[in-house]
Write a protein that binds this DNA or RNA. Sequence first.
DNA 1: TGCGTACGTCGTGTATACACGAAGCCTAAT
DNA 2: ATTAGGCTTCGTGTATACACGACGTACGCA
Lengths: 234, 234
Amino acid sequence: MKSVLAAAPGPAKKGSTRKKGWALGSDIGADLETQIIEGRLSPGAKLDEVTIGNHYSVSRTPVREALRALAAKGLVEFQPRIGAIVARPTVGEVMDLFEVVAELEGVAARLACERMDEADEKLIVETHHSCIEAASSLDPKKYYQTNGQFHEAIQKAAHNQMLSEQIEHLNKRLSPYRRFITFRPGRTETALREHEEVFSALLKRDGAAASTALRDHVRVLAEDTLALARSLKF
Amino acid sequence: MKSVLAAAPGPAKKGSTRKKGWALGSDIGADLETQIIEGRLSPGAKLDEVTIGNHYSVSRTPVREALRALAAKGLVEFQPRIGAIVARPTVGEVMDLFEVVAELEGVAARLACERMDEADEKLIVETHHSCIEAASSLDPKKYYQTNGQFHEAIQKAAHNQMLSEQIEHLNKRLSPYRRFITFRPGRTETALREHEEVFSALLKRDGAAASTALRDHVRVLAEDTLALARSLKF
DNA sequence: TGCGTACGTCGTGTATACACGAAGCCTAAT
DNA sequence: ATTAGGCTTCGTGTATACACGACGTACGCA
């Protein structure tokens, strides 16, 4: 009955081939998030609701909800009367974020020493070796990825889901800046030495040493990244 | 001209006394957040969009956006075909969250030892004394509040805005469970002794001791809270 | 009387319509 | 020619309308 009276400007018709259509907002949010993380949307980039909606063949509503969710996560900022832009934290905020990540990764290393089982250790060993391989391949992109797997393996070994989520979340906010470092020559060798230190401490179950080593490893990364970003942009 | 042609089912008319109406979603989100934190909305409580909209004399749209934002923050969960409910993490998740908070507060204590200036130290001393006073007043509510101020003072002294935000955010997610502990008799005395330990380590600028003491303080709180919650609900 | 099916109601997901502020541009006046 | 003022256009914030799945209830049939 209801669906027959037509005449009214019925929605969900020009959308052409809509199939499931039940979590559009989430999908769009995830895709936008990926684009921000991968650097295709730079900090400060304007996120026009209509443009994005057209791109996904969706109306503004789900786009707005996706943007709100990203804003709550800190990846997007809303400026009154302007709209949404990709979050552009200050240098100080980026430094603070890096520091928190470094501390959290240090915590993960310490907890991993206490809690990791054989499977965790196996994964850590494997990813560490993958890092060495990737470093020798001289493919920055590959090393960037493998490096992430090593860090993830440690977080997994800490057996604290919330800790992993927090680290992942903060890393997402930092990824636009972190990517700079991929291009820094000589960085890989230093990183690998630091990895080695973390690695041996983990195998020895020396929580304090592993924590300090991993924390400092991330700190160094942060300093290099910020120095590089400064030299490029200011 | 435009505003005169009426006839069309113009919006913003039945809303009666709307004045500014430009950030409704944020306001609603903040208010809902407060209600969740203060325990007026318990975990699992259903958040009906229309009901909430009526309560604030607003349509569903800003309510939806507010709920999406809260969901991204982890305070609200969306269940397909059911709608939004106040987040109800598992016991394991709550334990993990507590652990992360404990670690972060420990980090804050260590950083505070390195970075606090006179004003920070003054605030720490003042809030510590307020805690002692509040404890002797035997007013749990008052102690709960003063205790929070002491912890905040330490975070402030760490001079890392992002660290403070993370701790605050996680504490919001934990607040429904944290409130249990207010009613536990004898808890205050123990907490005060632990505070004393943190306090003296801070004054001595002993980062390691302050970090451990504060971390363990939060850990004990977590254990007590979980034990109490379990005894009440299971 | 018990069970199955169908219909009605409810609530969310999405689309569209309108209001309101802001910025840019054009015109006119000094 | 330059500047000031108004108008047009653009884009966001909010409200409303429609679509669609789920749950509950009632009626009919065995």
